[in-house]
Design a protein around this nucleic acid. Sequence first.
DNA 1: GACTTATTAGGTCAATCGTCCTAATTGGAG
DNA 2: CTCCAATTAGGACGATTGACCTAATAAGTC
Lengths: 194, 194
Amino acid sequence: MRGAETRTEIVGAADRLFYQGGFAHTSFADIAAAVQIARGNFYYHFKSKDEILEAVIARRLERTTALLAQWDEANPTPRSRLSAFVRLLAVNGDKIMAYGCPVGSLATELSKLMHEARGPAVALFDLFRDWLAEQFRALGCSEPEAQALHLLMRSQGIAVLANAYRDPAFVAREMAAMEDWIDAAITPQRPAIP
Amino acid sequence: MRGAETRTEIVGAADRLFYQGGFAHTSFADIAAAVQIARGNFYYHFKSKDEILEAVIARRLERTTALLAQWDEANPTPRSRLSAFVRLLAVNGDKIMAYGCPVGSLATELSKLMHEARGPAVALFDLFRDWLAEQFRALGCSEPEAQALHLLMRSQGIAVLANAYRDPAFVAREMAAMEDWIDAAITPQRPAIP
DNA sequence: GACTTATTAGGTCAATCGTCCTAATTGGAG
DNA sequence: CTCCAATTAGGACGATTGACCTAATAAGTC
């Protein structure tokens, strides 16, 4: 059963390298060097590079699902759960400033490559969107899905500019603005996205 | 002087291809096919692929500067100029849904490649940021640069999600939300980013 | 029209890419 | 211990990459 471990190591290294350097720019040689494995050995575990990408996306889907479940556990109220989402920008602040958002940058790259895995990559967005919408719905908001996409939109915009300018103050300021927007959005008298 | 025309054609084709398929994924063969030119001939006009990228960024800086000047001309008030910025999301809607934002996606890619042209690419953001800040300053806002970055952030977030979901309704909704935010931001009694 | 420069065409280069194949090695089952 | 399957190591493949070189051509200039 050593094979399964190797496969996991490959997917883990590929995940990290795809995030840091992009999918197209990461070669088998790069992954092989990271895992300390022979190059040809990849094809015992994966038939092609695209198959590694599939596995990486599957891994991210699993880990994201687990993260959202953990947020559900750790936060009793929908409002505090939304804050957990906002705080992710601070938790991963350094990585985001160095490499951008793993979800957004992968989806954008696969779109440009016209890669068939674009759909599965966008499914990562779906996880966050549906989870966020669930929180807004629990808070009695009128348009939970639109509000979820709005939060997702802001997090993506923050990630892109954080990566471009690498300014922690900007991230902190926009995180606070997100919190303010949430508070305003869940106040009944103000209906939609202000 | 045919040489200058050829160079312009090369840069124009490279600009489009870099946008549509990304910088790393676009080969000399791709550009050559687009311009109908011999591959080896590139090196008369450019010493390397990186030099083509420099020229593409320079071209984008020029064209963006011209666009902003045109917005200044066409719009008498700072408020209407801000709307011109928002409308860009609709004007380029189809391209954004297909390829994302040319500025954001290039900056993100060059960041991952650790390419030296990342700085010049981010300078494209500077043009928009400074121009937006000028409008907020003219409107007597207290933090024009932060507000400029906020608008830039929103446009980037919209571009990423528009590219991911390809949903025109989402873009239209968020454009309207941007306009509402601007109106609230330039109302004196409400200070900063709400 | 001769001459010189600017421009282009076409071919070659080593390096690297993803892919594939086969022999060696490992490790558990009988 | 033996044997068989699982796993790994290592090299070779054709294709493509960015880069470079040189000869042919076009375009002015005198």
